[in-house]
């Protein structure tokens, strides 16, 4: 297995090539979460890539609530063995299993719930976590959300429920890049103070650098040591939208825009091929 940085670089190449090929999709948040997805699917999640089942018994479940960053998920799933890497070339094309936003109706291994309409993933994750507890299944449920997504009311219904009922086999992660379609999250509608909000809702809250594997290892080690405290866990993960491609960083403009041919060449020059392009 290649080292994490090499995988993450290839994932970033996949992302920009996928969205360029169909002139659509969401590269910014995908690039920002490439390191996190690489860490999760390489070191953290206990999942069966070669024997995917919808039920997911006795394995960790991962839900992507901010479904628009599907490119990063599709890339890491394929590079983890859930489906052929060559299928990345079908992203957003007619009859593809790689829909613009994740879906289950075309049966893409690795995905158990449609997402795209924001704010729904945390509720779904709570339900999956409850069923795991009822089934005596000790594996964990993870849910990644965007920071702008926290403006959806349903997130706070779910936050209140999980905190008050002590859903302790649930780990939420917020991709805190402070960017959304119309600008900075803090300008569009402020979500701070994040840590205090989640604490007030009864969650055990952690801060993590979404571009540092050491930080990820430290935070998950801390979470594991607190696994029996009866609380749901929330990780506020600081990331940079567009990370790894200089002209996509420091702006919200690449949230949902694809690079042209020249921009693609520029981006790929910054992301050397490591595992072989699809």
């Amino acid at each position: 297995m290649a080292d994490l940085q090499a995988i993450a670089t290839q994932v970033r190449r996949d992302i920009v090539r996928m969205v360029h090929a169909v002139s659509s999709g969401h590269p910014g948040g995908s690039l920002g979460c490439a390191d996190f997805f690489t860490f999760m699917y390489t070191e953290r999640l206990q999942v069966n890539a070669d024997k995917f089942t919808m039920e997911g018994r006795k394995e960790d479940l991962f839900f992507l609530s901010n479904g628009h960053i599907s490119p990063v998920w599709y890339s890491i799933l394929s590079r983890s063995g859930f489906f052929p890497v060559s299928e990345l070339a079908t992203f957003r094309k007619i009859s593809s299993r790689l829909q613009g936003h994740p879906s289950v109706d075309k049966k893409l291994p690795g995905i158990r719930m449609a997402s795209g309409s924001l704010g729904q993933g945390l509720s779904v994750s709570i339900g999956a976590a409850i069923t795991k507890t009822m089934n005596g299944d000790p594996s964990m449920v993870y849910c990644l959300m965007g920071d702008g997504e926290l403006q959806e009311g349903q997130v706070w219904e779910a936050a209140m429920y999980a905190g008050s009922k002590g859903i302790s086999n649930l780990i939420g992660i917020i991709d805190y890049n402070n960017r959304q379609i119309d600008g900075d999250v803090s300008d569009v509608m402020g979500i701070l103070p994040l840590e205090d909000k989640w604490k007030a809702f009864g969650w055990d809250v952690y801060s993590m650098d979404g571009h540092s594997y050491d930080s990820m290892r430290d935070v998950f080690a801390a979470i594991d040591s607190n696994a029996s405290n009866g609380m749901p866990k929330m990780i506020i993960m600081k990331t940079e939208m567009g990370k790894g491609v200089d002209f996509m960083m420091g702006t919200h403009k690449w949230h949902g825009s694809a690079p042209n041919d020249e921009q693609l060449a520029n981006a790929l020059a910054q992301l050397p091929e490591t595992l072989g392009d699809y």
Partner: peptide, 21 residues
């Protein structure tokens, strides 16, 4: 008992099916 939070109830119900409920 989900409380007065119907959107959350539908999401939780959907998630509970994963694993056979």
């Amino acid at each position: 008992q989900i409380g007065i939070a119907e959107a959350n109830m539908m999401g939780i119900a959907a998630g509970m099916t994963i694993g056979g409920k």
